[in-house]
Simulated scan of single mutants.
Amino acid sequence: MWTTLEDSLCELGESPFWHPEERALYWLDIPGRAVLRTRGDIGSADAKVERWALPTEPGCMAPARSGGYVIALRDGIYRARAWGGELVAMARVEHDVRTMRFNDGKCDALGRFWGGSLNEAKDSANAALYCLDARPGTGISPTITQMANESTTANGLAFSPDARTLYWADTAAHVVCAWDWDAEGNSLSRARVFHQFDAKPAGWTTDAPQGYQGRPDGATIDAQGHYWVAMFEGAQLLRFAPSGEIVASVPVPVQCPTMPCFGGDDLRTLFVTSARKGRPVAEVERLPASGMVVSTRVDTPGLPVSFFED
């Protein structure tokens, strides 16, 4: 059973995470240029949704251990020390901000912030995955490093619980890839296809959605190391075993889920953001939760959010 979070409507919801200390759910509206959060008993009358306007499109964000947030905007990665606070640039990348922006990302368990970019024109596989290391005691100033590339729409970033595998998707290519990951040394090797999805059939429409699984968008990992990915236009989440086998398909009440995360005090509430922007009127009428946050309870808990260390 799915519950819709009131007042959570976005054009394109993304990057949800559960803040355990605040008992708060955070997420982004990318084209709406906003951070949203709701605190306390999610869904209760007292749990109001707050919105923080940003100067450009946010792609992803994470909480910081010392307070505040790290946020990837169109042109780079910024630090805010408090809700609604000043945005201070930490790192910029050399992409053309007229057609490129940051998209999906999160922190790893060691406190480094990862963010992938997106080619809005979708005419070239020139998007990349970056890692920002600002940890104290490393002897270096904040450093951003390109870790992978040759993508069109960076998505699906997730890290296995044992910190030995990194997952990263290219939505436009309908593929999720995996790498062996040395977390301490922060190096990637043995790149491989984790799962290749079929392309959208010619003539496919949301009026007749059968025959298309959707394409991989945002993702998360549960405590058993299973990879959960939102299938944009597929109206479902897929749960993969570490072997790459699909072990569950979970229908959602939106055509375009964008990213799942686990939250609640026991990390057994599955929250899912979704998209409404550009969707057909008939689809939105049929699926009125489109663009909102929906949630359900699950048996296997997720992993707690990783905080940015600086």
Rank of each mutant, 00 (worst) to 15 (best):
A72G: 03
A72K: 01
A72T: 07
L73M: 05
L73G: 08
L73E: 07
L73H: 09
R74L: 03
R74S: 11
R74Q: 14
R74V: 13
R74E: 11
R74F: 00
D75A: 13
D75K: 01
D75H: 05
G76T: 01
I77P: 01
I77Y: 08
I77C: 06
Y78V: 03
Y78W: 11
Y78G: 03
R79G: 05
R79Y: 12
R79P: 05
R79M: 04
R79E: 10
A80L: 14
A80T: 14
A80R: 08
A80V: 13
A80E: 11
R81P: 00
A82I: 00
A82M: 09
A82K: 15
A82C: 10
W83D: 12
W83S: 10
W83I: 13
W83K: 07
G84E: 09
G84F: 04
G84S: 07
G84L: 08
G84A: 09
G84R: 11
G85P: 13
G85F: 01
G85K: 08
G85Y: 00
G85A: 13
G85E: 11
G85N: 13
G85T: 06
G85R: 07
E86S: 10
E86W: 04
E86P: 08
E86N: 09
E86V: 13
E86T: 14
E86Y: 01
E86F: 03
E86R: 15
L87E: 04
L87P: 06
L87Y: 06
L87G: 08
V88A: 13
V88E: 15
V88Y: 09
V88R: 14
V88D: 08
V88T: 15
A89D: 01
A89F: 00
A89S: 15
M90L: 15
A91P: 07
A91G: 06
A91H: 04
A91W: 07
R92K: 15
R92L: 03
R92I: 04
R92Y: 00
V93Y: 13
V93D: 02
V93F: 12
V93C: 11
V93R: 04
V93T: 14
E94P: 06
E94M: 04
E94R: 10
H95V: 02
H95S: 02
H95W: 11
H95E: 10
H95C: 02
D96I: 10
D96P: 10
D96T: 05
D96Y: 11
D96H: 07
D96S: 09
V97P: 06
V97C: 09
V97E: 12
V97S: 13
V97M: 03
V97L: 06
V97F: 02
V97Q: 06
V97R: 10
V97N: 08
R98F: 12
R98E: 15
T99H: 12
T99A: 07
T99K: 03
T99R: 14
T99P: 00
T99N: 12
M100D: 01
M100G: 00
M100N: 12
M100P: 09
M100C: 09
R101Y: 01
R101P: 01
R101E: 02
R101A: 02
